[in-house]
């Protein structure tokens, strides 16, 4: 006897994500899920962001890695609200891990919560964490075909970052080709070029400021 269902397989994850989203909204914290390859500069970007926004906004970070708390330790030097999540064999974070990790922070004290996802351009895309936005991050040293090869990430991202622009003269990366691929998949998504190593992250800080104000309807994010 066949029983028809038609229900999203990740329904349970999505239900927990909804609870997370409600908790984030009640605490008026703007939540960013940062998704990118291993080594594209996610942790470095967050370190630089924490430096720039020190004293103006209160930031928390949930950082996911298969193993070690190295990223958590790096971020904790610049931020008092860091929780390292070790996923073991897991290649992504899910809503329940975020729920448990966020419970260890005082959300009401935070203006922005960054979720640094496990380095991976595929699996994290499928899991709603309760974030306000997903941000896709690439770097020029990965090659200019990465946007084209990961259409799902391109489609769900509210913002794309292209890091390591300082390396552009030294690597095989056709910037025009990359932009073309991005536009083919998502005509509207903003694409910001950064060089985190050299502190060139102003477009990202400006975007963050605008988003924080839009989401909260206040100027809590300076």
């Amino acid at each position: 006897m066949k029983v028809p269902v038609v229900e999203n397989v990740l329904k349970l994850n999505d239900e927990i994500a909804r609870l997370n989203r409600r908790a984030f909204q009640e605490a008026e914290v703007f939540v960013v899920d940062l998704i990118g390859s291993p080594g594209c500069g996610k942790t470095a970007l967050l370190e630089a962001t924490l430096e720039h926004l020190r004293g103006t906004v209160e930031i928390g970070v949930l950082v996911g890695d298969p193993a070690t708390s190295r990223d958590g330790q790096r971020l904790a030097r610049r931020c008092a609200h860091v929780v390292q999540i070790n996923t073991g064999n897991g290649c992504h974070l899910d809503a329940n891990q975020i729920r448990q990790a966020a419970a260890r922070l005082d959300l009401n004290r935070l203006d922005i919560l960054f979720i640094e996802n496990v380095g991976n351009l595929i699996c994290p895309v499928s899991f709603d964490l309760g974030q306000h936005v997903k941000v896709g991050m690439f770097s020029v040293s990965e090659g200019d075909d990465k946007a084209a090869k990961h259409p799902h990430l391109l489609l769900v991202s509210s913002l794309l970052l292209l890091n390591k622009m300082d390396l552009l003269p030294h690597v095989n990366f056709d910037l025009e080709h990359f932009h073309q691929d991005v536009r083919c998949l998502n005509a509207a998504v903003p694409l910001l070029e950064l060089s985190v190593k050299h502190g060139q992250i102003e477009p990202w800080l400006n975007w963050l400021t605008c988003q924080g104000q839009l989401q909260q309807g206040t100027s809590r994010v300076a």
Binding site: M1, K2, V3, P4, V5, V6, E7, N8, V9, L10, S126, H152, L155, R183, C184, L185, N186, A187
Partner: peptide, 17 residues
């Protein structure tokens, strides 16, 4: 260009027997 996605992101349980 571009067209808009109209399917392909499904992940659904359809039935159990």
């Amino acid at each position: 260009t571009p067209a808009t996605p109209a399917g392909g992101d499904e992940l659904d349980l359809l039935f159990y027997e």
